[in-house]
């Protein structure tokens, strides 16, 4: 899923500085699962913003709503009758949500409440980690099911580099060295020879470097 973190409240308050009436729009997709932008977090943000405003001696009217998803026009359409009633709309979806909203309702201002960080999953309750860099050409099967492009700080295909120590990456003790894990797994499997050939340079033309990506399923296009 897509992982995100909430923006600091100060940044959000700055965005809606001139607003008296706003709508906070949550999303029931990825951001609900990673507990950053679902109905619950919408309620918490609404309350926090109202507290901040009361402290300033001003009022803020906040309506709350959470859509099924914010990455499909059919759900975006569900707010068409009310979206114009507000001074601004805060979207708690990933970076996709406020863009779909902005396209659908060009006259309204939409602000992102979260910083979208990565594609990943929960490694324990309350902790999410990046697993995929969306490079457009999956190669994890060469590396024991682990992605060095997303998980090695230098995206090395022929690692580990000289900074690997104690199973950790040179950039931080909080970051596992994925190449340490790949080598250990291959060694345990008795398949170390899989890592002994020199992997050629990767083509990044399927990644973001090749320009914005687009996927088309002909059988579905109407």
């Amino acid at each position: 899923m897509i992982i995100a973190d909430r923006k600091p409240l100060a940044e959000l308050l700055e965005m809606i500085q001139d607003c008296d009436r706003i709508l906070i729009l949550g999303c029931k997709g990825c951001v609900t699962v990673c507990n950053v932008g679902g109905a619950k977090e919408v309620g918490i943000l609404a309350s926090a913003l109202k507290i901040a405003r009361k402290k300033e001696g001003r009022t803020l009217e906040v309506d709350e709503r959470t859509l099924e998803r914010q990455c499909d026009p059919e759900y975006i359409e569900q707010v068409k009758n009310e979206v114009g009633d507000y001074d601004a709309v805060i979207s708690m979806a990933c970076g996709v949500g406020p863009q779909f909203l902005s396209t659908a309702y060009p006259e309204q201002r939409f602000y992102p409440a979260v910083n979208t960080t990565s594609f990943g999953g929960a490694v324990q309750h309350g902790v999410w980690e990046e697993r995929c860099a969306g490079c457009g050409q999956c190669v994890i099967h060469y590396f024991g099911g682990m992605c060095p492009i997303a998980r090695c700080s230098k995206s090395l295909l022929n690692g580990p580099c000289g900074g690997s120590a104690g199973g950790k990456c040179e950039i931080s003790k909080d970051v596992d060295c994925i190449w340490d894990m790949i080598v250990r797994k291959k060694t345990e499997q008795g398949r170390l020879e899989d890592l002994l050939d020199v992997k050629p340079p990767k083509s990044w033309d399927t990644a973001r470097d090749g320009g914005p990506r687009r996927s088309v399923r002909e059988e579905l296009v109407q």
Binding site: N158, P160, C161, G162, S164, D180
Partner: peptide, 18 residues
């Protein structure tokens, strides 16, 4: 370059060979 002291130690000669 080669770093014989980085980990995993057992893999370092192989990386050098590569």
């Amino acid at each position: 370059a080669a770093n014989p002291f980085a980990e995993p130690h057992e893999f370092r000669p192989y990386r050098l060979a590569k």
